[in-house]
Amino acid sequence: MPFSVSHDQSVGIISIKGKFLGAKEGEAFKEAVNSLRDSGTKYAVLDLSGADLMDSTGIGLTIRTLSTLQAAGGDVVIAALNARIKNLFLMTRLLGTVFKDYETVDEAVASFGVTSS
């Protein structure tokens, strides 16, 4: 699997690894995000420290993740973008206007200010 889900306190951490090419992993990824929401996790960090490539379908999935958790009253931030993926987010103008990004997962988790589940 190119992604895994864990928790830091009440924040879900979705770690994406290698090539995040959405067409391949799309359905499993959507299900994982829905499960997070259904289990009551409203805040999530997309940890991209292990991701080296992302395509537009991958970006579409990150947008869908944000929409899903925002609709549940939560939010999603991005952590540890490499230069190439950051350029993609900058080009699409999603960074800043839609997604906030942080250098590390810890900073991203702390940004929510939630401490217990």
Binding site: G26, S56, G60, I63, R64, M91
Partner: peptide, 8 residues
């Protein structure tokens, strides 16, 4: 279109 579809 669905939320995961966008156009540049």
């Amino acid at each position: 279109t669905p939320k995961s579809t966008f156009v540049t």
